[in-house]
Design a binder for these strands. Structure first.
Lengths: 323, 323
DNA sequence: CGTGCGTCTGTAATCGATTTCTATTGCCTG
DNA sequence: CAGGCAATAGAAATCGATTACAGACGCACG
């Protein structure tokens, strides 16, 4: 691959001049032409590694998500990407697999590769991002909080959990269970808290035995639903605190021959790729893509030097009533 | 952030020695301890940009997929990631959005950022990867072919298309339509060719009017299905050549009140996140994750210096009969 | 005891760009 | 016509690591 030295030699100018042409600094039109022709002829591309080393900054932002196979996060990724492209940044997507070790590894890479910034959907409550912050690399949290004082884009988890639950109550269900995420999942667990609170405030007793924790995935949701169905007095409805556990719960219900609307189902999030259009499942749409564009906007502000105190943006869900 | 010079100063050794400790070269145990302590104290992390510049090689591989929101590609990505992690490589996932310009951009980045290699699911038939090849960066094609003589991992598209079609014929359908991808999509379009061929060989007439092209996405599939339903003699069954168009077709059918098994549906790929367990839709499972691990294995071989002639691995689909 | 080999270490070159500093030129102004 | 400023361009320093080369030392062997 050609370097600027070879381009410079061919064009009969100094490497500095080549660099200036590349970066739109003032260079006489004739030399600029010479350089451009030489670059063209040699099929020159700048070496980003060298550029980034010198500039101490790259034009890539990292997006860390806990589960790349979850359509919620891929939609979020699309949002980030769309916004980043607008400003000439590229996005690299890193799957942390809900694994703090992988997460740490990717954060370390983002840091030592001089990436422009990081958008992080933390896998666990207390992800350590002090390394990035020390180097003044901007970090924006999305969907879940960190313990750090940084920009964040969240959804209104309490009201999402509450409206999912309330919808089922309004439809006449009384023994409403909840399939929640892992205990240490942080913000999204506010949804199960909202479920508990809504149940109590509507006088539907102590629902503790109807609360099951799973792992945010399809199989976890299915197993949890199966467990619930084996209780002495099984529930007559269920709230799943994320989309995939909702899918799993529905699978278990179909296997047991209990299909909505006979059995009430409400999901925090949307059922991905559902084919039976207006199904009898209550869904609370969460604006995943918008979460992404918002996070990217906050991050790009910081990259461009904005240094106001940390901001938190909270987006709201939108309930889609069962048809 | 600390550099090896600062570590060297604190430890009372030369930067070269610090580097040797970092890379496990022979260094006396005492100095090694001194260096490790100093590195620890300063919270040192190596600067990958500098390292990569010097080594002309990074430990990151790029995976370019045309649609990050398609579960087929996220499963493939998981496969790549799992395999790469085993060998200490990280994966960055780039969404090309079926857009040749974005694809070119990401390829250019992979090249100029000295990435170790690229796994590419090309957006169009003739993606230009000559830049990478010039620099001897290994590239592996997956799911779709390139015009270049490189390693590739494919699926047996003809037999996938043929068995999806045959399954519908065997279930008694006769007017079987096909929702295919874009005309220039390359390999996956062998599936619609297999559909046509199967129809002809079974004596089901000239099916040209039952062939519709869409864009591999849900909405495209839905629109295509709607078009088909408006024909004078509408089909009684449909083959979708990828998973998302299958979802779209099903949506259109539900809206029209035509649900399987009354209307025959076969999908090349799996319906993602389906909730109604043994549905009456024929699916041909494509081993997406395995595609990913295989591609990663081929790529890592090349990265480690393997220089045998280009290999092509073809994996087979597995038919899941409608329940 | 001298030669030779192997181990450990430091100095300095290197990767390929950007950028500071300096020099030259030309133009404008008083 | 002298002085000053702007525009242009080159030489060399720089970013932070790795590594070729060379020097110093110790040990074994003839």
């Amino acid at each position: 691959m050609a370097t600027i030295y070879e381009v410079a030699a061919l064009a009969g100018v100094s490497p500095a001049t080549v660099s200036r042409v590349l970066n739109g600094r003032s260079v006489s039109p004739e030399k600029a032409r010479l350089v451009r022709d030489a670059a063209e002829k040699l099929n020159f591309t700048v070496n980003r590694t060298a550029r980034d080393l010198r500039r101490q900054h790259s034009e890539v932002i990292a997006l860390l998500v806990p589960d790349i196979e979850n359509p919620f996060f891929t939609a979020l990724a699309r949002g980030v990407e769309d916004r980043a492209q607008e400003s000439g940044y590229s996005v690299v997507l890193c799957n942390t697999d809900e694994d703090p070790a992988k997460e740490t590894r990717y954060l370390e890479i983002a840091n030592s590769a001089n990436m422009a910034g990081v958008i992080l959907a933390p896998s666990r409550e207390h992800t350590d991002i002090s390394g990035l912050l020390q180097r003044k690399k901007p970090v924006v949290a999305v969907d879940r909080t960190t313990g750090f004082d940084i920009d964040a884009v969240m959804v209104d988890n309490r009201s999402i959990g509450a409206s999912a639950t309330a919808a089922l109550i309004d439809r006449g269900f009384r023994r409403i269970a909840c399939i929640a995420g892992p205990l240490d999942a942080g913000s999204p667990e506010e949804r199960s808290q909202a479920w508990a609170q809504t149940m109590r405030s509507r006088g539907l007793g102590d629902p503790a035995k109807y609360l099951v924790h799973a792992d945010f995935r399809v199989d976890g949701g299915r197993a949890a639903m199966a467990t619930l169905l084996e209780l002495d007095t099984p529930p007559d409805a269920v709230v799943a605190t994320n989309n995939l556990m909702g899918v799993g719960a529905l699978q278990a219900l179909f296997e047991a021959g209990l299909t909505p609307p006979a059995f009430g189902v409400a999901v925090c999030g949307e059922l991905p790729f559902s084919t039976d259009a207006p199904a009898s499942v209550t869904q609370v749409r969460i604006p995943a893509r918008h979460l992404g564009t918002t996070a990217a906007t906050l991050l790009l502000d910081r990259i461009e030097g904005d240094s106001q105190p940390a901001r938190t943006v909270v987006l709201r869900g939108e309930i889609l009533e069962a048809g």
